[in-house]
Design a protein around this nucleic acid. Structure first.
Length: 262
DNA sequence: ATGGTTGTTACACAA
């Protein structure tokens, strides 16, 4: 069995103790992090080694973005698809136990859902378009898991209010259509919905801009785990670690873990 | 309808 976790940590240096707690309690074989917000040399590698995660593949930059894969098992970095036109640290790829893992951090896209008025939204759509092209081309080329903060809540049960979020970046039709197209043309299965089909609501993120995240449960499912069609039947479990949102000084995202029989 | 919080950085910006 191979268990893979994904978590947007919003500064891995600030939250290294939380990561240690999660790894100690959940014990995934692999943890994919987004928004580490540091360079490779600044990554708190000792904190990971201390709890058994000695294999690291870090793609960082100063201050913002940045992704990393930490593993108990041997990891072989592989070439990541060029998804960001600005060359920001948004993709890390590795082979672990014969499974290719792509750890992605798609731009949030700021507030105005119009690419003509908002350069960041245009950037987000550009990254999604590159994903579509790359993964359509790669289809059928071996077992692949895509994880990460894709910053899109695709379905109406992936947000607290479909109607009220239709004009809100992360749930606009241009974004949700793009994500659906990437998944379908790439031949991927959304493991969350394989295990927990609609109409169950599933959230992995709750905004900091609310005094109490538990009030009205106004979340969104921005963090995803997709498996290539050949691998999806090997999926055995899908868990959202919601209590992590209530830990001291939390990330606004919580970890998601899948188990694969490989 | 609006504003709300957090992290990194340097005297805002990104989310």
């Amino acid at each position: 069995m191979l268990s893979i976790a994904t978590w947007n940590i919003n500064s891995v240096r600030l939250r290294a103790p939380l990561v240690q707690r999660f790894l100690t309690e959940a014990k995934p074989d692999v943890l994919c992090l987004q928004e580490i917000k540091c360079r490779e040399a600044e990554f708190p590698a000792a904190a990971f080694a201390e709890v058994g995660y000695k294999h690291l593949h870090i793609v960082g930059q100063k201050g913002w973005h940045g992704v990393a894969i930490a593993s108990k098992r041997k990891l072989e970095p592989v070439e990541a698809p060029a998804l960001c036109p600005k060359g920001e640290a948004r993709v890390a790829a590795a082979m672990i136990d014969g499974v290719e893992i792509h750890n992605l951090y798609v731009p949030a896209g700021a507030d105005i859902p119009d690419p003509a008025l908002n350069e960041k939204f245009a950037h987000k759509l550009d990254v999604l378009a590159r994903m579509k092209k790359e993964y359509k081309k790669r289809k059928g080329a071996g077992p692949l898991v895509i994880v990460g903060d894709l910053n899109v809540a695709p379905g109406e049960h992936d947000v607290w209010s479909h109607k009220q979020l239709l004009d809100v970046v992360s749930h606009t039709p241009v974004e949700t259509d793009a994500l659906d197209a990437i998944r379908d043309l790439g031949g991927f299965v959304d493991l969350a919905r394989q295990h927990r089909p609609p109409p169950e609501k599933l959230f992995t993120w709750w905004s900091y801009r609310s005094p109490d995240w538990t009030v009205n449960n106004r979340g969104r499912r921005l963090d995803h785990v997709w498996a290539s069609a050949d691998l999806a039947p090997a999926s055995r479990d899908y868990t959202i670690h919601t209590p992590c949102r209530g830990w001291d000084k939390p990330s606004d995202h919580v970890p998601v873990v899948v188990k694969l029989r490989v």
